[in-house]
Nucleic acid binder design. Structure first.
Lengths: 205, 205
DNA sequence: CTTCCATTCGGCACTGGGTGCCATTAGTAT
DNA sequence: ATACTAATGGCACCCAGTGCCGAATGGAAG
């Protein structure tokens, strides 16, 4: 995914060589999300999406490796943002504080994008096929957390402690998301904070 | 899954009426696991499995809803075991102790089944398609934990606290499993214990 | 033994996601 | 105009999964 498919039609700098891409991931994603909202995920075929976007079915699969990837946009860019945030934190900040802060920061969303993001997440966590596929994305997210924790702890990234920490953080975040989707008026940041706080209290026993 | 597909060929009680099933989930699962070990999951088609088991492709899908379900056996029975174990614990045992104990108990495996279980889990966590599909099974597991926690806490099962706890426990268990798969000589119970212990220490900060 | 009924089997055709191949199209540079 | 580059999209193909329906297999009732 990410932007290595050479598609950012328009600016970028490179004077373009060869035929220009006829669309973008973002546009395809948008078209698809609209269709999903109308007919539902399962009742929307890739042909429908390609037709609605005015491209061939074969071309669709050059922009997205699978139908399941549509709601994700370019997650890799988000991961880079998270990595950068973690690296910007001072090393004397306790590990748990750093990780908790980054989870909160990663999931901070501008108010105007809340409805949009809500729809995306409702899809991702509500449609079984998408929830299953999401696991693979979450794995990449966990790796970011685990690598940071491993560096701070001075242990390999694939050892128990960073991995367990990363899994835990993912779990907490998803539990908060589920609440957020159910309660229309809830604030995601607050939910994340209380989930994290709860974890600390519960384990203090 | 479970046993509602009416296939437990042999005993059961009901004197059988109509044609008898020509195989069982267990046998199919066994045949499939063997093929997976030889050729790999992705390079084994459903036709291969059906042929190896001596049944028609169409019949295969009456025993398993999908190819992805093959390595799972009857997970529902395991979940019932877990529920029963949780219910058997005294109510004055602190919640966290109860949950931790049940995670450990759920993943206790007889020594003779270790190699078998290892292969199954290596498949489930190593093949992307299976890992993704597993999410749906893990959801059922999480529900068991969340329902118990909710009862102990006197809150709805879909509220934040039980859900976050369940997610966390799943994460810890999976982190331990990953270590177990990497280290051939490791003991799963010990890994689970140290992962749980670590979580407590880390959050005590 | 024959008839009836229940249940499983499995072939066939079809949908839908995903891929490899390759000619075509649309651009830039010379 | 020519050459080169990169994206497009049609076509054929593979595989998972489903609906339909007739055929096979068994027990029970006549």
């Amino acid at each position: 995914m990410s932007t290595d498919d050479g598609s950012p039609a328009g600016e970028g700098g490179a004077p373009r060589l060869g035929r220009r891409p006829s669309t973008t991931q973002a546009e395809l994603s948008h078209v698809a999300l609209t269709l999903f909202a109308e007919r539902g995920f399962d009742d929307t075929t890739v042909d429908d999406i390609a037709a609605a976007a005015g491209i061939g079915r074969r071309t669709f699969f050059r922009y997205f490796a699978s139908k399941n990837d549509l709601p994700w946009g370019d997650f890799d860019a988000q991961l880079d943002r998270m990595r950068a945030y973690l690296d910007s934190l001072p090393d004397d900040l306790p590990l748990m504080d750093a990780v908790c802060a980054s989870v909160i920061e990663f999931n901070r969303i501008p108010p105007e994008e809340v409805p949009w993001h809500r729809q995306r997440m409702r899809l991702l966590l509500g449609v079984p096929a998408l929830l299953a596929h999401s696991t693979l994305r979450f794995q990449a997210w966990r790796d970011v957390v685990a690598e940071y924790a491993a560096r701070r702890l001075g242990v390999p990234a694939d050892s128990l402690e960073p991995q367990a920490l990363a899994w835990t953080m993912l779990g907490i975040a998803l539990a908060a998301y589920e609440q957020w989707l159910v309660h229309e008026d809830a604030d995601l940041t607050e939910l994340l904070e209380s989930a994290l706080r709860m974890l600390g209290e519960r384990f203090a026993s």
